[in-house]
């Protein structure tokens, strides 16, 4: 079974495929969200230490995972776009960034709402929180650079270089922040998710996984739609776009 993947690397063939993918992943994501939310709120038991408030992790952890995963995928697409000069790769990187930034923000927001009842404070300068904040800055920088350059090809390649520099830096930033945090252990607030994870019951883990997959499929659906718009924007003058739009009339 040799599928010719390169066939789909041209925007003309990818555009209709992306439309179908968006629909299917959108439906799958809604179904998974319903199941995941039901599991998170009605099946998963109340945590005996943290009460009902712990249920925030069912959105917080998937959002945090997705934010990091999306940055990684975005950097890979950006690198592919620079190495092979494929137009579609850069468009994918550009389409991923806003959703990545959104999940980063949700992770920060929900983390803050978790912190208030659990630790009694909205914000802690904890290593993980600070790293997540920096990740948000990196996403914003990527999008800002992209929108500041008018020439689409130059914008794609410049922001691609930035994404690669960011992904090389990310581990260094993460470890330096973690190390900084251990140095400044002023307020002794222990991260209790660690405890939750080790003694987490299977049902909690499953609900979290279902929610993560729901977020993942959601991302695919949204990104596919966004990449369709970017393709139309960039390829507006090509013949295939004109023929396609003429046919549908």
């Amino acid at each position: 079974m040799a599928i010719n993947w390169f066939k789909y690397s041209s925007p003309a063939t990818f555009y209709p495929l992306a439309g179908r993918l968006a629909v299917w992943f959108g439906i799958a994501s809604v179904l998974l969200l319903v199941v995941g939310l039901y599991m998170s709120f009605f099946v998963a038991p109340t945590d005996y230490k943290q009460g009902e408030g712990y249920r925030i992790i069912y959105i917080h952890v998937p959002a945090a995972w997705m934010s990091m995963f999306i940055y990684f995928v975005m950097a890979c697409w950006a690198a592919a776009g620079i190495i092979w000069r494929t137009r579609l790769s850069s468009m994918m990187a550009l389409a991923l960034a806003p959703t990545g930034a959104m999940f980063t923000f949700i992770a920060l927001w929900t983390g803050s709402l978790w912190g208030k009842p659990m630790w009694g404070t909205w914000w802690v300068w904890d290593a993980r929180i600070v790293s997540e904040l920096i990740l948000l800055f990196l996403f914003i920088g990527f999008m800002a650079l992209n929108s500041a350059i008018d020439d689409a090809r130059r914008a794609a390649r410049a922001s691609g270089v930035l994404a690669i520099v960011g992904i090389i830096n990310l581990p260094i930033i993460y470890y330096s922040v973690q190390w900084w945090n251990t140095l400044h252990q002023g307020a002794t607030i222990k991260f209790s998710t660690q405890g939750v994870q080790s003694e987490m019951s299977e049902i909690m883990l499953y609900s979290m996984l279902v929610m993560t997959f729901a977020c993942w499929f959601y991302t695919i659906a949204v990104v596919m739609t966004r990449v369709r718009r970017i393709i139309l924007e960039r390829e507006g003058n090509s013949t295939w776009v004109k023929e396609m739009l003429q046919e549908e009339r």
Partner: peptide, 19 residues
């Protein structure tokens, strides 16, 4: 939610608005 309603619905509500 046992007194945690504000935090839980604040989290899921904001996520829902965005998503």
């Amino acid at each position: 939610m046992n007194g945690h309603g504000l935090y839980i619905w604040g989290s899921f509500g904001m996520a829902a608005i965005f998503m």
